[in-house]
Design a protein around this nucleic acid. Structure first.
Lengths: 141, 141
DNA sequence: TATTAATTGAAAAGAATTCTCATTTAGCAT
DNA sequence: ATGCTAAATGAGAATTCTTTTCAATTAATA
């Protein structure tokens, strides 16, 4: 997924290709891990100093609704955003906050749950694993 | 797990058994699903009208640190609390917000992740499934 | 180039959570 | 019972995060 694919996607949905949106998408494309709205704002501000957080939140909402961006809630309640490249989950370090993505899904568990709740229309799931990364473990010792 | 077990636990840790804490524990014991701090505050206020949310948050923090209460983060960033009875996850309705607990854990997935990341000290995980419950589906139709 | 609806910036408002500090109180030792 | 002391509380201020408002701007179309 590159920038022009994303822009084509926006255009097809009838959305305007504003420089702000493009920059937010560039930031998300360059990110190697999910970012908070504030972090996205700071990175966007490097090129567009007066883009406010309001615009960041609005754009993220729009992109979420289009299915281009996913929101992950981290322990403590922090919300982070990333492009929907492929479905993935994260291994999050409780020490430094860094997150590593992994592509495994708890498929067997989802199947069990769906089978046990036939009335429920399952639309999605979240899964995250927490602990301490190698570096933080060294630092603690 | 009943109230006096919980109180014994607190006492053993050297914490005071204030009426406020007891009432918060009673509310958590009576709850059938994880509650937000605000909801807990409202329920506590039925018997102790001037317990503030500050006390609710502080008490929940204390109970979390003792391992008596767990915090679950819901989509959108809402944090909810429940007694640690047994480890469980939730099936959450995106329509009405109600949550149903289930005891399955995505064990195979956890094992895969741990195997793929030997440096990482895994301490916990979160897992939740989202969708629409039978009632909300009827209401939509 | 003009028009128009979508988008934005800036600031205010709202919600959730944490912090502060003077006052109160549970638990312990008289 | 009473007094002592550290812990806990109430009330409100302060933070942080997110959403909303509205006038001004701008991308897209004719």
């Amino acid at each position: 997924m590159n920038l022009s694919d994303l822009l084509t996607g926006l255009k097809e949905k009838g959305l305007k290709l504003t420089p702000q949106r493009q920059q937010i998408l560039r930031v998300l494309l360059a990110a190697e891990q999910p970012l908070s709205a504030k972090e996205i704002g700071i990175l966007v501000n490097k090129r567009f100093p007066n883009v406010g957080l309001g615009t960041v939140y609005r754009t993220l909402d729009t992109l979420k609704q289009l299915g281009l961006v996913s929101e992950t809630v981290f322990p403590g309640g922090g919300r982070r955003y990333e492009l929907c490249r492929e479905h993935r989950h994260h291994l999050v370090c409780l020490g430094c906050g860094r997150a590593v993505a992994f592509p495994f899904c708890p498929a067997d568990c989802l199947a069990k749950i769906a089978a046990a709740n036939p009335d429920f229309d399952v639309r999605g799931h979240s899964f995250a694993v927490f602990g301490y990364c190698g570096e933080c473990r060294k630092a603690q010792a």
